[in-house]
Simulated assay, not measured.
Amino acid sequence: MLRNTLIRTAIAGVAVLGLAACGGGGDPLSSGDGGTSPAPSEVKSITVGSADFSESQLLAEIYGQALAAKGVDVKYQQNIGNRETYMAAIKDGSVHLLPEYTGAALDYFKKGATETEDDAAYNALKAALPAGLEVLDKSPAADEDTIVVNKETAAKYNLKSLSDLKAHSKEMVAGGSSEFKVREAGLKGLKEKYGVEFKEYKTLDAGGPLSTKALQTNQIQLSNFFTTQSVIADNGWVQLEDPENILPPNNIVPLIRTDHNGANISDVLNKVSAKLTTEALTELVKRIDVGKEAAKAVATDWLSKNPLS
């Protein structure tokens, strides 16, 4: 899923720097001669990647189409996979630009991060990034992780907060993505901060059709969804409050390789971020997930209604 048409001609090289030196662990950025290349004044082509869910694919299309309208040659690597997979792609230069989320990305690069405010998480993320990666302006639009229970379970146990789970969790089956099972914003944090353990965990998907059906049919009683997903309200599911703040703030932010962050790129993407809102994003995602419209078409429509100049 990974191709790169510009790296060999656009950069002299990016420093080989292990993410562990920046608090995050993981593989170092791919490099040429070991030097860190400055941002070019203008970028003529770029490869945009996305994660394996519809909102990320939508944002990648919005970024790419906005850049293409300004004369940038844009290629896509959509549906790369989970965070670990697409981070490997941007580190090795196979993709140059990704839509990301401030708190989730911060947790990737700085394990155990405790920032709970939007600006604090954004600033901490900027400080935690390895040489060769940058984030541009964060958007006011946010898509937070949320832990939900179906309405039958909420009523049965009178659940309003994650702290209410402890007395009943061993009678419950949780489900969702493989990441939710092991991350701080998931079962790990629930156990450490709330003392919650479940009878069983079913590995399904990240707020997708498998988790939706399982929660609807009570095969699971709790899962991780995202606040821009209309399926939560449509099914009357209850979003549990998080007084211990295991769920980070997640403003949308472009993550980009420094060697592909020209002034022409950042100018366009910062304008996109400024115009995105949580409400608009929720509606756009619903058009894809419920209305079955293509992400490309939905992105084109949004851009036509939100000119950047």
Rank of each mutant, 00 (worst) to 15 (best):
W302M: 00
E279F: 09
N4F: 02
Q229D: 14
I62W: 07
S37D: 02
V48N: 04
V182K: 15
L247K: 06
E241A: 15
P307V: 10
G291Y: 15
N218D: 14
A142N: 10
Y201L: 00
D289C: 01
L215Q: 08
K181Y: 10
F109T: 00
T114R: 11
W302L: 02
N82H: 05
L308D: 05
K156P: 08
I147Q: 03
Y157A: 06
V173Q: 10
D92P: 07
L204S: 12
K70D: 05
G175H: 10
V238G: 02
A20G: 14
G34C: 05
E100P: 02
E61F: 15
G189E: 12
K213I: 07
A120E: 01
N4E: 12
Q65P: 11
P140I: 07
A263K: 15
K91R: 15
A105L: 11
V74N: 06
V298E: 12
D33S: 12
I232R: 04
L303C: 01
E279D: 13
S169N: 04
E200M: 06
S273R: 01
T227S: 15
T9D: 11
N79Y: 03
W302Q: 04
H96N: 05
H168E: 03
G24T: 10
I252N: 09
A142D: 12
K191A: 10
I11T: 13
L19Q: 12
R3K: 14
D234L: 09
A155I: 04
G186Y: 00
A294S: 15
L255P: 03
I256A: 11
I11R: 13
V148T: 04
D301A: 12
A89Q: 13
G64V: 02
A263E: 08
K166H: 03
G207Q: 04
A214W: 08
I252V: 03
L129T: 06
L215S: 08
T102F: 10
V48Y: 11
A155L: 01
V298C: 04
L159N: 10
I7C: 08
L59M: 06
